[in-house]
């Protein structure tokens, strides 16, 4: 059984389709990243899964329960934790009162452990809380009843980098215990660290769902190097190299007496051995081979120049279908600026 099953989900606000025939599923124990720029419709899907709004068309189940049937939805919610993008609580009450109330309704077997890590000032009223503390309270309430599934909308947006790391470690530990998670984000580096698989949403439509490892494999490596001598891009023209750029300068650092140096960067999606063999012919001043930033991958799904950018990574079958679907949507409001936001 899938933890989450979304089938042909459509949500219309008048003419605008916030979700347009979205279909995906999240397996038990999986961490699924729901990606897209702001306004792509991520929150709409999440709100439908939690029963805050009803779908115009299509269906969704959470932990096997139909979310449009209230008794079923309530049964599901007993085992679901939810962390909204900006959690809000009654300003006049203390954090402790909020947690006491939540515990009285859904249980709180993990409350103590969570408060050891995420420690908002519980005896103070929430109006005195910083954004980070409200977010910590939100995390505690989302996990305190030891849910089987957590649904999180931009979970680390309000946290400082240290807390973000704590959160990611917590999430990893929980998923090792068997927790299933769906988290939305427009921060790719975050998703890459914690997710097994991602769905990329663009202007209400799901452009693709893919394993993070596959996504990274398809984008290949970014190669950055300083090479002795003057070279032009043709020198690095090997199969799998894309967007080769070279610029020659007089020297490198304080070694300006050694003659010209060429700075070269390209994206490489071919065999690593072939790359090493070709590079062996050069004299390197430095070399960095890095994972391509997911932002580049993102651009393929969001960018208006999606076709022009896409190198052939050898898995064209999976890439072309969704890309074609995306191109049809280019005239939709909000799609043009999407790539830049991401």
């Amino acid at each position: 059984m899938s933890a989450i099953e979304v089938e042909g989900l459509t949500k219309a606000y008048g003419e605008l389709l916030a979700n347009d025939d979205v279909t995906f599923s999240v397996a038990e124990g999986e961490v699924f990243g729901y990606l897209g720029p702001n306004g792509a419709g991520k929150t709409t899907t999440i709100r439908t899964l939690l029963g805050f709004q009803s779908p115009t068309e299509g269906s969704a189940t959470v932990l096997g329960h139909d979310v449009t049937d209230e008794p079923e939805l309530i049964a599901a919610k007993r085992r679901v934790g939810y962390l909204p993008a900006s959690p809000a609580f009654d300003e006049t009450v203390t954090g402790r009162e909020v947690l006491d109330f939540h515990e009285s309704v859904k249980g709180g077997s993990r409350r103590g452990d969570l408060l050891d890590v995420f420690d908002p000032p519980l005896s103070r009223p929430i109006r005195e809380y910083s954004t980070g503390n409200v977010q910590k309270l939100g995390i505690v309430q989302a996990f305190m009843h030891d849910p089987d599934l957590v649904i999180m909308d931009e979970p680390t947006s309000g946290l400082d980098p240290l807390m973000q790391r704590e959160f990611n470690e917590h999430l990893r530990a929980e998923t090792e215990r068997g927790l299933t998670a769906l988290l939305s984000s427009h921060v790719l580096s975050e998703v890459r660290r914690v997710c097994d698989r991602v769905g990329i949403l663009r202007a209400g439509r799901l452009a693709t769902t893919e394993r993070v490892a596959d996504l990274l494999g398809r984008t290949g490596k970014v190669v950055r190097a300083h090479v002795a001598g003057a070279h032009d891009p043709a020198a690095f023209d090997l199969p799998g190299a894309h967007d080769v750029t070279c610029s020659t300068m007089r020297g490198y650092g304080d070694r300006d007496a050694d003659g010209p140096v060429t700075e070269v960067t390209f994206t490489y999606t071919g065999e690593v051995d072939a790359l090493v063999e070709r590079l062996g012919a050069f004299h390197f001043l430095d070399l960095a081979v890095e994972e391509a930033p997911l932002e580049d991958v993102f651009m393929r799904f969001y960018g208006d120049d999606a076709d022009a950018v896409a190198p052939d990574p050898g898995s064209a079958d999976t890439a072309d279908g969704p890309d074609d679907a995306v191109d049809d949507r280019d005239s939709r409001p909000g799609s043009a600026g999407g790539g830049r936001d991401a």
Partner: peptide, 13 residues
Amino acid sequence: RERMDVLLSLPVS
């Protein structure tokens, strides 16, 4: 105030 989301995420009708 967007507090209803957290409330309705609880198992209550």
